[in-house]
Write a protein that binds this DNA or RNA. Sequence first.
DNA 1: CTAAATACCTGATGGC
DNA 2: TGCCATCAGGTATTTA
Length: 270
Amino acid sequence: MPELPEVETTCRGIAPYVIGETITALHIHQRQMRWPIPKQIDALKGATITDVSRRGKYIQLHTGNGEAIIHLGMSGSLRITEPKEPKRKHDHVEWLMSNGHALRLHDPRRFGCVLWHKAGTPAHPLLEKLGPEPLGNAFTADYLFDQTRKRKTAIKVFIMNSHIVVGVGNIYASESLFMAGIRPGRASGRITRNESERLVDAIRTVLAKSIKQGGTTLRDFVNSDGEPGYFKQQLLAYDRAGEPCTQCGGLIKQKVMGQRSTYYCSFCQS
DNA sequence: CTAAATACCTGATGGC
DNA sequence: TGCCATCAGGTATTTA
C-alpha cells in the first residue's frame, strides 16, 4: 500500500497533532505485527514527542528517550481520531495525546511494525543499511549508474530495492520506468549513463507529483484525516493493462516480475 | 557476494 | 449462497 508519497503524506498529516504533545496513554490491542511490538515501547508513556520524521517508508516519532519506528507495510494507515471514536477491527495501537486527540494505527494485513530505538544506542539495524532518499541530493545519475554496474537484476526489481534507493514501490517503479522510456525487464547492468539520468529524474518527478496530490489510493490508503490520495488519476502505466498508452495509443502490457505485477508500453519503452 | 524464492496476514474478487 | 484460487500498495530472511 503505502509507498514514499503516502508515508510522507501521513507524516505531514499527523505532525501538527502530535509534535509538542505528551503521550498520556498507549493502548496495544494487537502485539503481533511483522515483528512483535517490543515491551520497550512503554518508554513512550509520559514522553513528549519532539519531532516526526521519515526515513524511506519508516516513520519516526521522536522523544527524549528515543524514537518509535513505524512501518505501514502493505495495508497500514495512521489516523488522528477522537479517543471516544469506536475502535475498528484492525486498529492495533492507539496513542493518546495531551491535546485530547488520539493517533491510531490500523493495519488489516499486519505487515507493518512498531519498533523502538533507544536514544544513544547504535542505529537501528533496519534503518542502518538503507539507500539514499530519492528526493535528496545523494540520489544522482552517477550514483545509480555506478550501483547498476555488473548487476543482472531487472531494473524494475533493482529500483525497488531499499538498499539501493528507498521509497520506490510497485506503483512508482512502473510509473518511473514508463516516464523514463526504459523497459522494466532490462538488466540493470545494461542501463546506460544517459538512461540512468532519465530514470533518476523520472523517479524524483513522479514521487514529488504524487506527494502534491496526497499520494495514490488504489483501494484502501487514507491519510491522517481518513481521506484518500488523488494521484491515481495521473497514473500512466500502473493498473492500466489493456488500456491505450497516453504517448502512442498502443496497449499497456502487464507482466509479473519479482512476483509483482508490472506495467509498461512495449513501443515507448526500450 | 548476487539473485530468486519464501514468509508474514487479511480481505476483495471472480469462477464454478 | 458457499468454496476455492488468486491477487493486493512491502521487505526481511532464507535458499540456491
